[in-house]
Structure formats: structure tokens, C-alpha cells
Simulated assay, not measured.
Amino acid sequence: MSSALLQTHALGVSFGGVQAVRSVDFNLEEGELRCLIGPNGAGKSTFFKLISGQLRPTRGDVYFRGQPIAGLTTHHIARLGIGIKPQTPSVFDGLDVLENLRLAATCREGRHSARQLAIEVLGRIDLENHAHRLVGDLSHGQRQWVELGMILASRPRLVLLDEPAAGMTQAETNITAALIRDINAEASVIVVEHDMDFIRRIANTITVFHQGGILAEGSFEQVTQDAQVRDAYLGREVVNA
């Protein structure tokens, strides 16, 4: 077995005979930050759902720290040390910011320690002035930051983020990029994203999906200059990426 933190072997899923993801071999090392890109329908979001437990694979294996996790529920996978952020924020709108963070921290800490950790995380997401505001009253970007804070408070080994910058202003996107880098100082990270400018700022390595499989992997510069990637996904826009 590989020493990779997360590994998939021949992972795939089919819907009505259509292979949405086909035989993907993927490795993520400790401390790595990986971005998944590709055109719509390429399989990247489906792959994300397979490794996060939102979908059950038709074939293949997923290993986290050497333990098979294919087919486990999202809740079970999260308890193993994987923080999962789907596209839609999964927060408690009827509770204030601090209480959302405290609840997330109780997964790893006792009651008193959870509150102290929540206060610490509150500063890291720069929402101290909003500690007692209901999350449902916050802006879209702030609600996203609360969820990133909840992930930080659960102290995961691996963080899975599905389009974390979607719908944000440029200023909010800049803060989100910094938060993801902050998370990566403590955990490995996989990000599914479309915004190439955002990816340029956070990515160490990029995996490009196309037609249900991996087309290319490498640094931002390597991927954006790859002729196959330009033809399949980036096109002429790569010149200005």
C-alpha cells in the first residue's frame, strides 16, 4: 500500500451505463494542496463526491491513511479526519458564529477546550466583530468563511472543498485564498474550482479531468502550457490565465 494520505485505485462510477468517472488512480501526499479542474461533465465533481462519501463508487477503491473508505457515509468519513465543504454552505443559520464554531470543535475537544478553540478560530477567519451575529444574517462570503472556520475547528488531516470561491466578490475571494493557505498549513487540501485566477493563487499541483479520467497533472505553469489541456479545457483563455 502506498504511503499517500489519500489514494484511489481504479475508482469509477457509472450512471445508466454512462461512465461518469472511469478507473481513476490518484495520490495525495501529506501537506499537499491539490486543485481539480476540468470542463463541465469532465468528472471532477463526481470524483469529489466519491471520495467524500456523497456518492458510492461502482468500482475501485479509496484509501485514507491506508484505511479503505469507499462506500462509507459522509458522516463516517468526516469522523476519520476528513473535513468536507460542499458547494452550498452547511452551517446553522439560526445560531451565532461563535456557537457554530464551538459545535464543530466539540468533535475533537471537551466543552471548555471547544470554546477556547472556537474563539481562536474566530480570529483566524477575521470574524471577531461578528461573533454573536446569527449566521443566517451574514453575507454569502462570510457564511462561507464560517464553514471554513468550522472545518479548522474540527482539526482534520484532509480538507475537501467544492468551489469555495463561487459567488464571491473579488475582495472575498482574496480572503478565501488566504484562509485556504492557512488551512493547508495544518492539513492536506483538495479543491474543486473553475476560477483559474483563484487556482493560480492557491495551487501547488493541479489535476485536470477530462471525459471521466485524469488528462494531466502538474504545476499551474505546466498544466496551462499543456497542449492537450488547452485543447480540452483552457483554450485561448490560457494566454490570459
Score class of each variant (00 low, 15 high):
L72P: 04
T73I: 00
S52F: 07
V62P: 01
R79M: 09
T73D: 14
T58P: 02
G53S: 09
G66M: 01
I69S: 02
R79T: 12
I69L: 00
R56I: 15
L72G: 00
Q54E: 15
T58R: 03
H76E: 15
D61K: 11
A78H: 01
P68Q: 14
R65Q: 15
T73F: 01
H76D: 15
R65S: 14
R56N: 12
Y63D: 02
R59K: 13
L72H: 09
I82C: 04
F64N: 06
L72N: 09
S52C: 12
G60W: 06
Q54D: 14
G53L: 05
H76C: 03
R79S: 15
R59Y: 08
H75E: 15
Q67W: 00
F64W: 06
R59F: 02
G83N: 10
R65V: 01
I69A: 03
I77S: 09
Y63M: 07
L72K: 12
Q67G: 00
F64D: 03
V62K: 02
A70P: 11
Q54C: 05
Q54K: 05
R56D: 12
H75N: 12
I77K: 04
G71E: 04
A70K: 05
G71N: 06
Q54R: 07
G71I: 02
G53H: 09
I82S: 07
L55I: 03
L80T: 04
R79H: 12
G53D: 09
R56V: 15
G66Y: 00
A78F: 00
G71V: 01
G81I: 08
G81V: 04
H75C: 00
P57R: 03
I77Q: 08
I82F: 01
P57T: 03
S52D: 14
I84G: 07
R56C: 07
G60L: 10
G71D: 08
G83I: 12
T73L: 07
G71S: 04
T73R: 10
L55K: 08
H76N: 11
Y63A: 07
I69P: 01
H76Q: 14
V62D: 08
D61E: 15
H76V: 14
G81K: 05
G83L: 11
Q67D: 08
V62E: 08
G71C: 05
P57M: 01
I69C: 00
G53Y: 09
G81Q: 13
D61M: 08
L72Q: 13
H76Y: 11
L80D: 11
G71P: 02
I84E: 08
